[in-house]
């Protein structure tokens, strides 16, 4: 029963959605006028803070948020906005503290968990970064691919081989074995000393999307190059050359692809 609180504050960042079509300066000017006649308008204060943020006028944004906190200490969204601004300014500890206040009111916020995952990453708190990414996935009705990718990124950085593999499996079970995800998995496998498994993944991409065979063979050649497996790399390049032949003439004509092919031919000529 929010209505029993001394000051009701369920601020909505989007109350002014349609006004957002005006220029930023005009919107700020209008918000100034509104707040001049009603300085305690909590919605407007939060809105103006966001405008100042968009305008990169951080001091003014903080001033509005500080005032809002005094008028309406029970507001939660001001803390989320403050955390975002502080994150932009690389002030991660303060951002984390602000986010903590937000979580008191809204512990189930997916956005806040994803934000805290990133802040934790920036501050080297790997365990928390992973945990928040996992919670964000768990809370969402249908988590977007980007949430899985955040988890994978954190697992690659801080997690174990098993937990990273599990994160990839989780993502694939949700969105399917899409080429961009497989490509990333192959890169990770190569980085983590499993190039043979990476090669298997590259093969899967080529089987699934033959039109990508040429570029994926080049990716694989690049992987073997990095591991100084010259014969493997050479083999991959030969395969790329073969794959080029089966490419549609239209793809062959694209300048970016032609340049890749010419570069391939050059590298094949090198001893």
């Amino acid at each position: 029963m929010n209505y029993l609180l001394p000051i009701v504050l369920c601020v909505n960042l989007f109350t002014h959605a349609l006004q957002a079509h005006e220029t930023l300066d005009k919107q700020i000017q209008k918000a100034n006028e509104t707040l001049k006649s009603n300085p305690s308008d909590t919605n407007e204060l939060l809105y103006r803070a966001r405008l100042h943020w968009e305008h990169k006028d951080y001091d003014k944004a903080f001033a509005d948020l500080d005032r809002l906190e005094k008028i309406a200490p029970l507001s939660s969204k001001l803390h989320l906005l403050k955390a975002r601004i502080l994150t932009d300014l690389d002030r991660y500890e303060e951002a984390s503290a602000s986010l903590g206040k937000f979580f008191v009111a809204e512990p189930q916020s997916i956005d806040a968990h994803l934000l805290r995952s990133k802040i934790s990453d920036y501050t080297g708190k790997g365990y928390q970064a992973i945990a928040d990414a996992r919670v964000a996935i768990k809370l969402a009705k249908k988590p977007p691919l980007s949430s899985y990718l955040q988890l994978i990124a954190m697992e690659r950085k801080y997690g174990s081989e098993d937990s990273t593999a599990e994160a990839f499996a989780l993502a694939k079970s949700a969105v399917g074995s899409i080429p961009s995800l497989l490509e990333t998995q192959a890169e990770w496998l190569a980085e983590s000393g499993n190039p043979e498994q990476a090669s298997i993944i590259y093969t899967k991409i080529r089987e699934k999307t033959p039109s990508l065979s040429f570029t994926i063979w080049l990716d694989e050649a690049y992987m073997w190059d990095k591991l100084a497996k010259k014969s493997y790399a050479y083999h991959a390049r030969l395969q790329a050359k073969e794959a080029w032949k089966s490419l549609s003439p239209k793809i062959q004509q694209r300048k970016a692809m032609t340049e890749k092919y010419k570069s391939l031919l050059l590298s094949l000529k090198k001893p």
Binding site: L114, S146, P179, E183, E187, S211, L212, S248, M257
Partner: peptide, 24 residues
């Protein structure tokens, strides 16, 4: 998460390049 995506993480930018390379 998509609009600020960078290459290398399997997100929208990686997909976009693969998609462009693949279309004939």
């Amino acid at each position: 998460s998509n609009a600020q995506d960078l290459p290398g993480g399997g997100g929208m930018i990686d997909w976009l390049e693969l998609d462009l390379q693949s279309t004939d």
